[in-house]
Design a binder for these strands. Sequence first.
DNA 1: GCGTGTGAAACAATTCACAGCG
DNA 2: CGCTGTGAATTGTTTCACACGC
Lengths: 205, 205
Amino acid sequence: MPRENVPDVVIQRLPLYLRSLVHIAERGQKIVSSTELGTWAGVSAAQIRKDLSYFGEFGKQGLGYDVDFLIEQLRRILKSDQTWHMLIVGAGALGHALANYRAFENWGFYLVAVFDNDPQKIGNPIGHLIIQPMEELAETIRERHIEIGILAIPPQSAQAVAEQLVAYGIRSLLNYAPINLALPPGIHVAHIDPVVSLQSMAYYL
Amino acid sequence: MPRENVPDVVIQRLPLYLRSLVHIAERGQKIVSSTELGTWAGVSAAQIRKDLSYFGEFGKQGLGYDVDFLIEQLRRILKSDQTWHMLIVGAGALGHALANYRAFENWGFYLVAVFDNDPQKIGNPIGHLIIQPMEELAETIRERHIEIGILAIPPQSAQAVAEQLVAYGIRSLLNYAPINLALPPGIHVAHIDPVVSLQSMAYYL
DNA sequence: GCGTGTGAAACAATTCACAGCG
DNA sequence: CGCTGTGAATTGTTTCACACGC
């Protein structure tokens, strides 16, 4: 679909544009210029136009972009117009917060299973699901066609669990454990670590 | 302290080096080469040497880096060798998970107050703290010398609350609300949004 | 006239490759 | 000899500026 190879930085900005566009649409606005969208998203107008140009021509010269149309296109490009199945490993405080987070489903990301290795927790409800034992991992991934794994476990076990998930067919991981995962090429890992974010900010304090 | 102006990407990588070094130190290793550290942190050896060279000469030629010494230096550079006071606004599931997250204090980040605007929640315990009403925001920030604010609230109120925090002297924000904040220059904002991370990953699926 | 789309120009980041030193 | 530190070369990203079309 992309006309040529798209830099990763561009892919990381598209969700920000999409979020800003939804905000603009909710205000009832139908048309937006790259300048205005750039102000909302915190990037330059030229950058928005260049980024979008990797994927096609979505604007109207002299006018701007149709907000609803551009939302639709970005959803398509980011594959947020289809359904993805996710699992969480780790039913601690973070696992619970994620299991109750309602914003995933708007974007096609459905949580369909939660796992933990603590016998005390297995069988307990979490969100609208039941905590399952790790033994059911392989079977559930296969049967529910799960593509995305979320790690909400301590760093000590993160590498081993990540390897299990990859072995069972997961290709995308959202890692909340504060450790750098070493995984084979082709596996995509996104990292969320508040300490890393805080440390980068503290530099400027 | 930095010899010249340091690119922001470099600052964002230093916490990853620090995290890897701690891991290496816990295994009892005393010396590490840029090649080995790079493998752990997922970057090239040359990049590590270049990044560190912005701040000084920390290695020994022909040998490598003293692990403990480099940890000490990175803690100093990232200001993680001193104490910072943080507050959370929003005592929902995420606020609770963050309030119970034990990893902050290892790095000098101390949570000293949690706020919410829900009268039902005010006065309830959260972690080792008590949920306070928003009216006490200004006073608490001043009295407890709070430098960092964490937003764990719905996106509708995030901009207004962020502006309040800035007005009361907060210069660094960790924003969990899925909205781009527009704030005056000089204020540092780090964003954590799992949907943004998932959307970037889904592109490659 | 206004705002997009896009080559060209400017700028930034990364990698290379090697001198220098323990 | 091995590994750091660093200019130089390369690669990647952003900004500029303008032709084009509504």
